[in-house]
Simulated scan of single mutants.
Amino acid sequence: MTTYELDRAIASTPGDDGLRHLVLTADWNTPNGTANGGYVLAVLARATLDEAATTAPAHPDLLTVSVSYFKPPTPGDAAVEVTTLRVGRRVSVHQAVLLQNGATVA
């Protein structure tokens, strides 16, 4: 199986604190030095899908996504908190929050 650079950049690992931990890269920064919004969305989506895979029944696809950007993240350590709000037979609802230095980023 081929692993792409973006796959590595958005991958997170579950921690004992209930968060998914990752290191944000500067590879997808905009010209003004902040993370591209699509990259931030990809980080949140990947973490959500990884967490959703642990629920029963597992729902492997995102149907809709909405994101609010509070401030641009910086390259470095970050965490995603994924909360399962509802698990149905066909659809589940999750909330994902990108955290950096104790502050909500997106």
Results as ranks from 00 to 15, higher is better:
residue 55 T to W: 07
residue 97 V to W: 03
residue 82 V to K: 01
residue 13 T to V: 14
residue 74 T to M: 09
residue 37 G to T: 04
residue 30 T to W: 01
residue 103 A to G: 07
residue 41 L to A: 14
residue 48 T to C: 12
residue 78 A to M: 11
residue 19 L to K: 02
residue 7 D to S: 14
residue 92 S to G: 15
residue 59 H to R: 11
residue 92 S to W: 06
residue 98 L to A: 08
residue 6 L to K: 07
residue 79 A to S: 15
residue 49 L to R: 01
residue 87 V to I: 15
residue 79 A to Q: 13
residue 16 D to T: 13
residue 59 H to W: 10
residue 47 A to M: 04
residue 12 S to Q: 06
residue 32 N to W: 15
residue 12 S to P: 03
residue 35 A to R: 01
residue 8 R to D: 15
residue 42 A to W: 00
residue 21 H to T: 12
residue 100 Q to C: 08
residue 27 D to P: 02
residue 74 T to F: 03
residue 97 V to C: 05
residue 100 Q to G: 01
residue 75 P to T: 08
residue 20 R to K: 04
residue 104 T to H: 03
residue 12 S to M: 03
residue 88 G to L: 11
residue 14 P to L: 08
residue 92 S to T: 12
residue 43 V to W: 02
residue 31 P to Q: 07
residue 85 L to F: 12
residue 73 P to E: 08
residue 16 D to V: 10
residue 93 V to R: 09
residue 50 D to W: 00
residue 82 V to G: 02
residue 21 H to A: 05
residue 72 P to W: 00
residue 10 I to K: 01
residue 66 S to A: 14
residue 68 S to C: 09
residue 64 T to L: 05
residue 80 V to L: 02
residue 79 A to G: 09
residue 80 V to K: 03
residue 35 A to M: 06
residue 10 I to N: 01
residue 6 L to C: 05
residue 71 K to R: 15
residue 70 F to V: 10
residue 39 Y to I: 01
residue 43 V to H: 05
residue 104 T to S: 02
residue 92 S to P: 01
residue 100 Q to M: 04
residue 48 T to A: 14
residue 93 V to N: 12
residue 105 V to G: 02
residue 23 V to F: 09
residue 25 T to E: 09
residue 1 M to P: 00
residue 19 L to I: 10
residue 50 D to E: 14
residue 93 V to L: 13
residue 61 D to M: 12
residue 95 Q to K: 15
residue 83 T to K: 13
